[in-house]
Design a protein around this nucleic acid. Sequence first.
DNA 1: GCGACAG
DNA 2: ATCTTGTCGC
Length: 236
Amino acid sequence: MPDTALHDWNLAPKEAIALQKRLAGRVERADRLDPVRHLAGVDIGFEEDGAITRAAVVVLAWPPVASGEFEPATFEIVEQVVHREPTRMPYVPGLLSFREVPAALGAFEKLTTRPQLAMVDGQGIAHPRRIGVASHLGLWLDLPTIGVAKTRLCGRHEEPGPARGDWTPLVDGPDDETIGAVLRSRAKVKPIFVSPGHRVSLATAVDWVIRCLGRTKLPEPTRLADRLASRRDPRC
DNA sequence: GCGACAG
DNA sequence: ATCTTGTCGC
C-alpha cells in the first residue's frame, strides 16, 4: 500500500507532484484481474457551489443482462453508494487525484460489495507522470481500474475511424510511449480517452470499455456513476 | 515567454 | 465540475 496517508495530506502542489512520482512506479499496467463478477463505475460531483464533494460508486453485475458483441449492453445494478464531504482542494490540472480520491475512498468504505474491476471518470496512466486519478485510486485500493475520460489531458493521437469500436493509440513523450486509446464509443460523437488505471493492460482496458457500451457515449459503469454523482439519478 | 490543461 | 434554454435526432 502507498506510503502516505491521503486522508491526512496537506500537500502543496510541489509535494503532491513529488508524491505522484514515487507512486507512479508502483502502478501496474499488466493484467492481474480475478474473474469479474462485479464491476464498478466511479465519479465525483459537487454541491453547494463546489464546497461539498460528492463521490458516487455504482456496482454492476457481470455479465450483462443483455448484450451481443456489438449490441447495447444492459446491466443489473447491484449496489450504489454516495459519500459527501467538504471539498479541500481546488482543481489543478494534473493533480485531480488529490481533489477526488479522498472522497472516492469514503464511498468505497460504504460499499458492501467488493468489485473486481472499476471504471473511473478521468485518466489512468494517460497523465504527465503516468498516474491519473484512475491509477491513483486503483493503487490505493489495490483494485484493477480503467480510466475513462471525456477529453484529453496529454498525449498525441490520430482521429479514430467513424465506427463504434474504432480507436487509435494515444502516445506521449519523446519516445511515443503508448499511454491510452482514443475510442469512438458511438458514431458521430467525439471519442473518449481510455487508459490503463492499475493492474490492467491497454488492450484489456479497451476490451472492457467496449463490452460495457450501452447506447450512449460513456460506458454504462461511468454513465451511471456520473448520473448519481451529479444528482441526475431518476430515483434519488 | 507562449500555449495546454482530466474534472 | 457547475450554471442553463433551446434545439436536433432517434
